[in-house]
């Protein structure tokens, strides 16, 4: 898939992080199709729109990013999930991978790290899902 064609959704309860992540992606000519501040908003978004990659914060109120990841992987198998969190203990990373995440990035996020993760997914054609 051409990187410009990939449809990316950013899910984070922090307005600030959502905007900054979207800026990083748009600066690299990636296509951010939406932002969601909660798991509920994210599920509503993907209900009737296709998303290739969802960047999902783990610690969110009400429904966690891990639960959202499980939901996405189960209901939208063509969507890859990259989990992000300020906490990065081994058990959290393993839980994210077990939930179906393709990658995990600890906050503070570095642009090159995020892009590397996305490009890897795109070049694999999501084979790792």
């Amino acid at each position: 898939m051409n990187k410009k064609d990939a449809r990316i959704l950013v899910v984070d309860d922090s307005d600030f992080s959502r905007k900054e992540i979207s800026k990083y992606l748009e600066a690299a000519n990636l296509n951010v199709v939406g932002e969601a501040s909660s798991a509920k908003e994210a599920t509503n978004f993907i209900k009737d729109r296709h998303v290739d990659i969802a960047i999902v914060d783990i610690v969110m109120p009400e429904i966690s990013g891990l639960e959202l990841t499980e939901f996405i992987v189960e209901n939208n198998p063509d969507t890859a999930v990259i989990c992000i969190s300020s906490l990065a203990q081994e058990n959290i990373v393993m839980e994210a991978i077990s939930a179906g995440a393709s990658d995990f990035i600890q906050k503070p996020i570095k642009q090159e790290q995020l892009l590397e993760s996305i490009y890897k997914l795109l070049s694999n054609g999501f084979d790792n899902l």
């Binding site: 922090s14 992080s17 300020s86 906490l87 990065a88 203990q89 600890q106 906050k107």
Partner: peptide, 13 residues
């Protein structure tokens, strides 16, 4: 809010 979350998360990690 997000800076404190990142600081605390990195500390606890």
């Amino acid at each position: 809010k997000e800076s404190a979350n990142i600081l605390l998360g990195n500390t606890l990690s």
